[in-house]
C-alpha cells in the first residue's frame, strides 16, 4: 500500500506545469486533488516517476459567471461546487453531483478537472458534464484549445488530453428556468462507484418535453448519450417517458464485474433513465 518512489515537483503556474510535463516526459503525471490518483498509486496500478502538483494553483479555483455559461476552474474542489451560489442557481446538477462524490473529506480534496482528466467512465462527473454538453479548456505548449465533453472522453481512462497538456477550465451552460435535471446513481454501498448512473437535463416546453439530454455512467468505456431515448422524448408528452426509457441501453456496451452483470446494468440503465427523466421533469 506504499506507492512506488517518485520525484515531486510543484507547479507555480499552468505554464510551469506544461514546462515540467515537457521536461519529465511521458512517465510524469499531474496531481490535482489526488483522490483518484493516490489510491491507484497505492495499489501500484499507476507508478508515475514524477508527480507535478497543481495543488498550489489557487488561480484555477473559481466559479465565474460567463453570461450564458458558468466557467469553473479545473482545481475547484467538489465541496466548493456543492456550496457555490452560482452553481446552485444556474447549474444545480453540478453541485448536487459534487455532493455525491465520496464523502465530505474526499470532496475537500477532489477537483472537477481532476475527476474529468482521470476519465473513469464509472465516475459521475464525466456523465454530468457530457449531458450538459460542457466544454473543457485545455492548455499546452501550443496554447489553448477547447474540446467538447463528448470528444474529450475517448476510451476507458483515456481522454483527449495530450502528454503535455493541462485542463484549465470547464464550461457548462446556464440552465434556463424551464429546464430540470437529475442525476440518479445505483450503487450497493454509499461510497461505491456507480454500478450505473444516469444524468438527465430536460427542457420543458408548453407542457411537453422540448428536449432531453441523457448521459449514462458505467455503461461502456466512456459516458454514453442515450440517443434513442433523447430522440423519442424530443417534443413528446411526459407520458412517453416510461416507454422511451426502454431503449436507454441501446448502443451501450456495459461490462460484467463483481458489482453487476452486463444484463443487470442494461436493466438498471432503463429503470434509472425513467426515474431521472421523471425527476428532472418535476424539478
Amino acid at each position: 500500500m506504499i506507492p512506488m518512489a517518485f520525484d515531486y515537483e510543484v507547479a507555480e503556474s499552468v505554464d510551469h506545469a506544461i514546462d515540467l510535463l515537457g521536461q519529465h516526459g511521458e512517465d510524469s503525471k499531474l496531481l490535482a486533488g489526488g483522490h483518484s490518483l493516490i489510491p491507484i498509486m497505492r495499489l501500484r496500478l499507476a507508478a508515475p516517476t514524477v508527480l507535478i502538483d497543481l495543488g498550489r494553483l489557487e488561480e484555477l479555483r473559481y466559479v465565474r459567471d460567463g453570461g450564458d455559461h458558468l466557467a469553473i476552474g479545473a482545481m475547484t474542489r467538489h465541496r466548493d461546487l456543492l456550496f457555490n451560489d452560482l452553481v446552485k442557481e444556474h447549474c444545480g446538477i453540478v453541485g448536487w453531483t459534487a455532493g455525491l462524490l465520496g464523502d465530505p473529506s474526499v470532496q475537500h480534496r477532489g477537483t472537477l478537472g481532476g475527476t474529468l482528466s482521470h476519465g473513469d467512465s464509472s465516475g459521475d462527473m464525466p456523465s454530468v458534464i457530457t449531458a450538459l454538453e460542457g466544454e473543457l479548456t485545455i492548455k499546452g505548449p501550443q496554447g489553448e484549445r477547447t474540446v467538447e465533453a463528448a470528444d474529450f472522453f475517448q476510451d476507458y481512462m483515456m481522454t483527449d488530453l495530450g502528454e503535455q497538456e493541462v485542463v484549465t477550465e470547464i464550461r457548462v451552460p446556464k440552465l434556463a428556468p424551464g429546464t430540470g435535471w437529475s442525476y440518479k446513481k445505483f450503487s450497493r454501498r454509499s461510497q461505491d462507484w456507480a454500478t450505473v448512473g444516469v444524468a438527465a437535463v430536460v427542457e420543458r416546453s408548453n407542457g411537453s418535453i422540448g428536449s432531453a439530454r441523457i448521459a449514462l455512467t458505467s455503461m461502456g468505456a466512456t459516458p454514453i448519450r442515450a440517443a434513442a431515448v433523447e430522440q423519442a422524448l424530443s417534443g413528446a408528452s411526459p407520458d412517453a417517458v416510461a416507454e422511451a426509457s426502454q431503449s436507454a441501453d441501446e448502443g451501450t456496451n456495459p461490462s460484467s464485474d463483481d458489482a453487476a452483470s452486463a444484463e443487470f446494468r442494461r436493466h438498471l440503465a432503463r429503470v434509472f433513465t425513467q426515474r431521472a427523466v421523471e425527476e428532472a421533469l418535476g424539478r
Binding site: 489510491p39 464523502d103 475537500h108
Partner: peptide, 27 residues
C-alpha cells in the same frame, strides 16, 4: 482502510477535514 473510505485517518488541513492516508506529506 488505507483507501480513503473509512475515515480513521481524518485530520484537519487548514481547518477542513481530509483523509491523511490519501495525501502526501509534501502536499
Amino acid at each position: 482502510c488505507n483507501t480513503s473510505n473509512c475515515g480513521a485517518c481524518t485530520v484537519l488541513l487548514n481547518g477542513e477535514s481530509v483523509k491523511s492516508c490519501t495525501l502526501f506529506a509534501v502536499q
